[in-house]
Nucleic acid binder design. Structure first.
Lengths: 227, 227
DNA sequence: TAGATTGTTAATCGATTAACAATC
DNA sequence: TAGATTGTTAATCGATTAACAATC
C-alpha cells in the first residue's frame, strides 16, 4: 500500500554512489535510444553499457541494477526501452519536480538558462534575489522575485527542492528560510559549510574544492600514490 | 631531491575523499583567522575544527592530517596559522595555477566572474568560444579567444588545467584539443561521458546528476534505507 | 544443445570509527 | 601532577571486484 513502485527498493543497503551511477546509465541509454535507431537488437548487455559509460565495469552495473530487481534475462541482456523507463522511475524523474533558485547572479542565471533541467523533469518555478533592480525581470521565462517573499512562496507552492547560488555570507540565512518554508532537498553552490536539520538532504557543489582536488594531483604527481 | 615539500606524502595510501576534506579544513581555518581576531589561543583542537566543519568527526580530521605528518602537539592541539599554511601547501594552492575555460556561455561567464578562484591561486588566463560574435570581448578582464586557437594557446602558455563548459555535443572534441595541447587536469561541466588517456585527471560536475541524487531521496523517503 | 549473460555469493579492497597509549 | 589531546593500532563498516551457478 505504501509501495509506489514495482521494483524492490526497501530491503537492501544501497551504496550512495550507486544512485549517481544510475543517472549515468540512464543518460547513456537515452542517448542510445535517440541516436542509434538502426540497432538490430532491442536488448543490451552489461558489457555494452559498460562501454557506453566509458569505465564503469559490467560487474558494477549488474550489481547496481540488481539492488532494485531482476530486469535482465540471462544469456540475453536488458531490454533497452524498459530499462530506461525503470531507471527513470527509480530516479524519480518520471515525476515532475518544482524547484526554486535563490540568487540570480551569474551562476543563478546560468542555471536558469540550463537546458538539462526540463528534460529530467525539473521545473524552475521562480528565482529569488535581494537586489531590487533585478526583481521583476524574467530570465528564460522565469520570474525573479524579491528574496523576502521566498519563504511564503515555498509554502504557497509547496516547493520541496531549492538551489542556493547566493554569496557565502547569505547562504546560511537563505538555507534557513528555505527549510522554514518546507524545502527538504537543497543543492548548495555557496562555498561554505551550512547547518541544517537531519531530515534535510543537502548536497554541496564547490567548484574551488573540485579544482583543488585536481591540482593536488598535479602538485604531487611524482611523489605520491593515491588509492 | 625529488622531495618538494617538507611533509610526508609518499608512504601511505591516501583516500580520495581526504583531499576534499583538506580543502574544507583549509577553508574553515582561513575563515577563523580572518574573523576571530580576538581569539586567545593560537592553537585549535580536532574537536574544535570538527565544529567548524559542522559534521566531520575529530577522529576523521586527525586521521586525515596524520597522513601527511605530525602537525599537532598532544594535549595542546594544532597551531592555527601553521596548519593553514601546511594545508595550503599540501593542496598546492601556495603555487599559482594558470587555467583556461572552454565555452563562454552562461556557465562559462559565471565562472569567469567567480571570485573564489583568485583567492585559491587560480588565474584564468583566457576563455575560448567558437561564436565569433563573442570573440574579442572581455569578461571580468579575461579575453575571449577563438576556439580554434585554443590548442596553440595552451602550448604557448604551458597551461595544465582546463574547464569545459561547452554544450555536450562539443565536449569530447574540446577535451581532445585540450589534451593535445598539454592539459592534464580537466574539470568538465558538460553532462556526458568523456574519453581521455589514463595520465589525464578529469573530474565531472554534473548538475543534473546532483539533482537526481537529491530527488532520489525525496522520491523514496519512506520505503528505503540508504547506508 | 552450446554460448551468452545475468544475478548473487564470496573474497577483496578501501575508508571510517573506536579506543587508547603516548605525551604535551 | 592531572587533564587534554594527539597519532596510531585495531575493529568495524561499506563498496567493489571476482567468480560462478543459474538459466535464457
Amino acid at each position: 500500500m505504501m509501495q509506489t513502485n514495482n521494483y524492490k527498493n526497501n530491503k537492501k543497503n544501497i551504496p550512495k554512489a550507486t544512485i549517481g551511477r544510475l543517472s549515468i546509465y540512464h543518460r547513456c541509454l537515452d542517448l542510445l535510444i535517440e541516436t542509434d535507431s538502426g540497432r538490430e537488437k532491442d536488448t543490451i548487455s552489461s558489457a555494452e553499457i559498460s562501454k557506453l559509460t566509458g569505465g564503469i565495469s559490467p560487474d558494477q552495473i549488474r550489481r547496481d541494477l540488481a539492488y532494485f530487481g531482476e530486469f535482465g534475462k540471462r544469456g540475453v541482456g536488458y531490454p533497452i526501452n524498459e530499462l530506461s523507463a525503470i531507471l527513470k522511475s527509480i530516479l524519480g524523474s518520471s515525476k515532475k519536480w518544482d524547484i526554486i533558485i535563490a540568487g540570480a547572479g551569474n551562476l543563478g542565471k546560468a542555471l536558469l538558462r540550463y537546458r538539462g533541467f526540463q528534460k529530467r523533469g525539473f521545473i524552475i518555478k521562480a528565482a529569488f534575489d535581494s537586489d531590487d533592480s533585478k526583481v521583476g525581470n524574467k530570465v528564460n521565462g522565469v520570474k525573479i522575485i524579491s528574496a523576502n517573499q521566498m519563504e511564503d512562496y515555498i509554502k504557497e507552492h509547496n516547493i520541496r527542492i531549492g538551489i542556493i547560488t547566493v554569496p557565502v555570507e547569505f547562504a546560511q540565512e537563505v538555507a534557513d528560510h528555505m527549510i522554514a518554508g518546507g524545502i527538504v532537498s537543497i543543492l548548495n553552490f555557496a562555498p561554505t559549510t551550512l547547518k541544517y536539520p537531519a531530515y534535510v538532504k543537502l548536497n554541496n557543489i564547490d567548484i574551488s574544492i573540485e579544482l583543488e582536488r585536481l591540482v593536488y594531483f598535479l602538485a604531487s604527481r611524482k611523489n605520491i600514490r593515491i588509492k
